[in-house]
Design a protein around this nucleic acid. Sequence first.
DNA 1: CCCTCGATTGACT
DNA 2: GTCAATCGAGGGC
Length: 212
Amino acid sequence: MTTSQPAAQSFFTNRSTQAIAQDLLGTHLLYTNRRGTLGGLIVEAEAYVGTDDTAAHAYNGRRTPFSEPLYHGPGTIYIYQLRGFFLFDIVTQAIDQPQGVLIRAIEPTHGIEQMRLNRPKPGVELTNGPGKLMGALGICDQQLTFQNVADAPLMIDLAHRRYPQSIVAAPRIGVNSKATSGQLPYRYYVAGNPYASGLPKRQWQRTNHGWL
DNA sequence: CCCTCGATTGACT
DNA sequence: GTCAATCGAGGGC
């Protein structure tokens, strides 16, 4: 058993949400429950940069019970439901800056058999989307919201991380491209990794799935 | 109260 | 490629 090193406050300190989103690529997202530990390497993430970002839940200072977790500081887990699926955000900034990162895809490394049971889909379909990866982890409620990735069963492990050969920046998925913030390149993914979401069936792949 | 719409997915032409 | 399911949040009245 190797030791895990949960993301500490310092991981989030003194840098932009965009920088944090990119640095999350290659870290492990791990979920431990009584079935064991499930998860994988984060290969895709999007930054949502708060009150000026028309695509963000906190746009224009909006603060409701739905978006409240965004105001609870770095590392806060923000799970919300969209069209019947659960999505996972990590809050990135201090309580007066309601910003976060949406984890959009992981490359499975832990508990793959269990994840295939949770979500019986072939190949990259297991975890190549924000709702899909949560289904694979078996998280289908908001229990962990308001907990912190530093000490929750759902954690970011920095100890055994990898690093992308290169990162692609692109407009975010599912946001209105005509809106003010619609074209901002705040979606980041590991170049050549097949688990990034929305890729064509036969997308070019890099050796090592794009890791150094 | 009623209406609109979404940080998605999966099925289908 | 297109499109509908589906349901709660949010906003208007």
